[in-house]
Amino acid sequence: QVTPQEKEAIERLKALGFPEGLVIQAYFACEKNENLAANFLLQQN
């Protein structure tokens, strides 16, 4: 279960064009650090 703040962060990451499953994995792998997760996702392409 995610908090409203976490859900907002996940939605912002999804808005970058990444699928939800990948976003969630990256977000939690980066210890819920939205900026770190965004950098991680962008570097995967």
Results as ranks from 00 to 15, higher is better:
Val2Leu: 10
Gly21Arg: 12
Glu34Ser: 04
Glu6Ile: 07
Ile24Arg: 13
Leu22Cys: 09
Val23Ile: 06
Leu36Asp: 13
Asn35Cys: 06
Glu34Ala: 04
Phe18His: 09
Arg12Cys: 02
Glu8Val: 10
Leu41His: 02
Thr3Trp: 02
Phe18Pro: 04
Leu22Asn: 14
Gln5Thr: 11
Asn39Glu: 13
Tyr27Ala: 01
Lys7Cys: 08
Phe40Pro: 00
Glu11Ala: 13
Asn45Thr: 12
Glu20Gly: 05
Val23Lys: 02
Leu22Gly: 04
Glu20Ser: 08
Ile10Pro: 01
Asn33His: 09
Glu6Gln: 12
Ala26Asn: 06
Leu42Val: 08
Glu6Tyr: 10
Asn33Gln: 09
Cys30His: 11
Pro19Arg: 07
Glu20Gln: 06
Tyr27Phe: 06
Asn33Arg: 08
Lys32Met: 05
Leu22Ala: 14
Ala26Ser: 09
Ala29Arg: 08
Cys30Leu: 05
Leu36Tyr: 11
Val2Trp: 01
Leu36Met: 13
Gln1Met: 12
Ala38Leu: 12
Asn33Thr: 03
Gln43Ala: 12
Tyr27Cys: 00
Lys32Trp: 02
Glu11Cys: 07
Gln43Cys: 08
Val2Gln: 08
Pro19Gln: 07
Gln5Phe: 14
Thr3Lys: 08
Gln43Gly: 13
Gln44Thr: 08
Thr3Glu: 12
Ile24Phe: 11
Glu20Asp: 08
Gln1Arg: 06
Asn45Leu: 04
Gln5Leu: 09
Thr3Phe: 06
Ala9Gln: 09
Gln25Leu: 02
Glu20Thr: 07
Gln25Ile: 02
Gln25Trp: 05
Glu6Val: 07
Arg12Gln: 04
Ala38Arg: 14
Arg12Ile: 01
Ala37Asn: 00
Arg12Val: 02
Glu8Pro: 11
Glu8His: 12
Val23Phe: 00
Gly21Ala: 15
Gln44Ile: 05
Ala26Ile: 04
Glu20Trp: 02
Gln1Pro: 01
Glu6Arg: 04
Pro4His: 13
Cys30Thr: 05
Gln5Glu: 12
Glu20Val: 04
Ala26Asp: 04
Ala38Ser: 12
Leu42Asn: 12
Arg12Ser: 06
Glu34Asn: 00
Glu11Arg: 05
Tyr27Lys: 01
Asn33Tyr: 01
Ala26Cys: 09
Leu42Gly: 12
Val23Arg: 00
Leu41Cys: 05
Ile24Asp: 12
Pro19Val: 05
Gln25Pro: 11
Pro19Thr: 11
Glu31His: 10
Leu42His: 03
Val2Tyr: 11
Leu13Tyr: 00
Glu6Leu: 03
Ala9Gly: 05
Phe40Asp: 08
Glu8Asp: 10
Glu34Val: 05
Phe40Leu: 09
Leu41Arg: 00
Tyr27Arg: 01
